[in-house]
Structure formats: C-alpha cells, structure tokens
Amino acid sequence: MRKYVVVGIPGSGKSTQSTMLARDFDLVRISTGDIFRWHVRHHTKIGARVRRVMTAGQLVGDVLVETIMRDRLDEHDWNYGFVIDGFPRNRRQAEFFLESYDLDAVIYLDIPDSQVRHRVLSRRLCERCGVDYSLIESRPEQEDVCDVCADSLVTREDDTPEALTARLFDYHKDIDVVLELLGRKAGVFVIDASRDQGTVHAEILSRLGLPSPPSPGGSAGMAEQGR
C-alpha cells in the first residue's frame, strides 16, 4: 500500500501529478479542491459556504477541511493506497492528519511565483462536468467549449489576480512548517515543477523508486496541467 501527499503552490501541477500517480498505480486520488468544487456545482450548503470563501481568494476554514478529509479517508476505499492533493495546508491540518494516518512520501512541487501566475490565470473549468483545461498545455478543441460535454468554459472563481495574491501569501506563510511536520513521518522529495508535466512525472517516479507506467506515453494527454 502506498500513501503519498502532493504539496505545492497553487498552479504547481498538484492535480496533474496526483492524477498520474493514481492512474499508474491504482491509487485513490483525494483532492480537497475537487470535493469542494463538487459541492459548489451541486449547490449544497457546504458549496454555498465554499463559494463565498473562494470568491474572496481565501482558504476554507480548518474545521470544514478536516471534517471533509476525515469523512473521505474513513471510506477506506483505497485498497492499494492513496495520493492526497491540496492537503494539509497549515500546521493545524498537518497535525490533524499525522494523528491518524501513516505516510510513505511527500512530493513537494517547487515553482517560482511568476510562473504560477502565468499558469493559474490560463486555467479554465467546465462547470457542468468539472473538467479542467489549460490554455498553455491542454487547450479545448473549440475555444471556450468543453470537449467532453460541449458546455461553456469559465474562469474559476478563485483564479483572479487578487485572489491568487491572497492564496500565495497564505501558502508561503505556512509551507515550511507543513513540510517540517510531514517530514517527521516520511521523506520529502523536492521536485522542480517548472518543467513540462512528463518530465516532472518521470522524476517523481524515479525519486520514489517506482517503475515507469507500462502503457506507451503513459504521462501524455493529461488535461489538468498547473492545477
């Protein structure tokens, strides 16, 4: 069983790399961002709270994040392990996680803020089916139209310059202590995430001692670069 956490600045490629790991090694991918966006799309009470926070460029409160993660991990559907994307984000969340769960490795995607801004402001989202696109790496076949369901693509509510500035501030304030705490239980592997997604994925596999995926071009075709 493999248990990984992928951490990094917004736009570093956490979603892309965690999705690749989950696909290649039969892991369950758990993303707090995906869970919250599901609630927003389905107009739940949680979704209404999250929408207000995301629009302001703030992070969802610790109590709600911890509740969501506890409920998700308690489903125990991860027979071969899990890869977590977007959690923990601060000291409290890291301590909460380490109280109950083991960990094999932490993958830290390191990338300059300037490149992050370029990536994040180029992201687009299909609100109907939840597919992410990047105008840099994975453009839709028809401009502003989802390849999957043909609905219109939009900019995520938290992908504005103002919201991104606030998120970057919170990230830099907390990341060192998160890595220090997680590093007490598992190795922390620092990966240069400024390169293309295939190169980044190959280095992650090498650093973790994992075999390359059996299918040809296993890391190509992902539509979620820079999340």
Rank of each mutant, 00 (worst) to 15 (best):
D24T: 09
A193W: 09
F25P: 11
S100F: 12
C149I: 07
T165L: 10
L179E: 06
V83S: 05
V83A: 04
V131Y: 00
F25V: 06
D174E: 14
R207H: 07
I175H: 08
G217S: 06
D62C: 08
Y101H: 15
H76V: 12
D158G: 04
R227K: 14
L153N: 00
G47A: 11
L125H: 11
A193H: 07
D85N: 08
G86E: 04
L179R: 11
S114I: 11
I84K: 03
G61K: 08
D77Y: 01
Y80F: 12
Q142P: 00
T16V: 11
T16K: 03
F97T: 01
P88T: 11
T160D: 00
R128D: 13
V177I: 14
A56M: 08
R123W: 11
F36R: 00
H201E: 01
G226P: 07
K3H: 15
P214G: 02
L27C: 09
L182S: 08
R49C: 10
H39L: 10
S134T: 06
G61H: 10
D174K: 10
G218E: 02
G130W: 01
I68Q: 01
F97E: 06
K14H: 09
S134N: 15
A22H: 04
K14Q: 10
E203H: 04
E162S: 10
R207I: 01
T32Q: 01
S138I: 01
D85K: 02
T16M: 11
V200A: 03
R156N: 05
F36Q: 00
L153Q: 00
R2W: 14
G86N: 09
L64E: 13
H43Y: 12
S15R: 07
L125Q: 08
D158P: 12
E137T: 14
F96E: 00
F87K: 01
T55F: 09
V178A: 04
V65Q: 01
V83Y: 00
E157W: 06
D170I: 08
R117P: 03
Y101V: 07
V148H: 10
Q142V: 15
W78D: 15
L168M: 07
D102A: 13
G33M: 02
L103R: 06
I84F: 07
W38S: 14
D132G: 13
V178G: 02
S114V: 10
T16D: 09
F87P: 00
E95R: 15
P216S: 11
L153I: 01
G183Q: 07
G8Y: 06
A150I: 02
I30Q: 00
V106N: 08
Y101D: 09
D26S: 15
V120Q: 07
R29A: 12
G218N: 09
E99Y: 06
R207W: 03
A220G: 03
